[in-house]
Computed example of a mutant assay.
Amino acid sequence: MRLHVRAADSPGWRYALLMRDYLRADPDRRAAYLLLKRDLVDAAPHVADSGTARDPWFDEEYLRTEQWAAQTDWRP
C-alpha cells in the first residue's frame, strides 16, 4: 500500500484528483492502466513497487486528462 500526501491546492493535488476522476470516467483508459500495472508485476515485481516505472504512462496520459478536464468542466 502506498500513501501519497499532497498539499491542498498544489499542482500534485490537482493532478492526483484529476487522474482519479479521469480513470473512473473512462473504462478503456482504466483498463489500459490496469494492464500496465499487471505487465510491470509480471516483468519484475520489484520494479512495479516503484512509482517511477509507471511515469511514462502518466506522462503520455497527461494531455488526455487535461483535454477531458476542459471538455467536462472538471474541477477538483
Rank of each mutant, 00 (worst) to 15 (best):
Val5Ser: 10
Pro56Ala: 04
Ala25Ile: 06
Asp9Tyr: 04
Pro27Gln: 09
Gly12Asp: 14
Ala44Met: 10
Ser50Met: 11
Gln67Thr: 14
Leu23Glu: 05
Ala53Cys: 06
Arg64Asp: 09
His46Leu: 14
Asp55Gly: 03
Ala32Cys: 02
Thr65Phe: 05
Arg2Asp: 12
Arg75Pro: 00
Pro76Trp: 01
Ala43Gly: 05
Pro45Thr: 01
Leu36Gln: 06
Val47Ile: 08
Tyr33Ala: 13
Leu36Val: 06
Pro11Cys: 15
Leu3Met: 06
Ser10His: 03
Ala7Glu: 10
Gln71Gly: 14
Ala69Pro: 01
Ser10Thr: 13
Ala31Pro: 00
Pro45Phe: 01
Asp73Pro: 00
Leu3Pro: 01
Thr65His: 01
Ala44Lys: 10
Glu60Arg: 09
Arg29Ile: 12
Ser50Trp: 05
Phe58Arg: 01
Ala32Asp: 04
Asp39Leu: 04
Trp13Lys: 09
Leu36Ile: 04
Ala8Glu: 15
Pro76His: 04
Arg6Cys: 07
Val41Glu: 08
Pro56Glu: 02
Arg38Asp: 07
Leu17Gln: 14
Ala31His: 02
Ala44Arg: 13
Arg54Glu: 11
Met1Ala: 13
Gly12Pro: 01
Pro76Ala: 14
Ala44Ser: 12
Tyr33Gln: 14
Asp59Met: 11
Gly12Val: 09
Asp28Glu: 15
Ala69Val: 03
Ala16Arg: 06
Arg20Glu: 14
Ala48Asn: 06
Ala43Thr: 05
Ala7Asn: 11
Thr72Asp: 02
Met1His: 03
Ala70Thr: 11
Leu36Asn: 02
Arg29Leu: 11
Trp68Leu: 08
Asp28Gln: 14
Tyr33Ser: 13
Arg2Trp: 05
Glu60Cys: 06
Ser50Ala: 05
Leu40Thr: 03
Asp26Leu: 12
Arg29Thr: 13
His4Ala: 13
Glu66Asp: 05
Ala48Ser: 09
Ala32Glu: 09
Ala7Trp: 01
Phe58Asn: 02
Asp59Ile: 11
Phe58Ala: 06
Asp73Tyr: 02
Arg14Ser: 08
Ala70Met: 09
Trp57Ile: 02
Ala70Asn: 08
Ala25Trp: 00
Asp42Met: 07
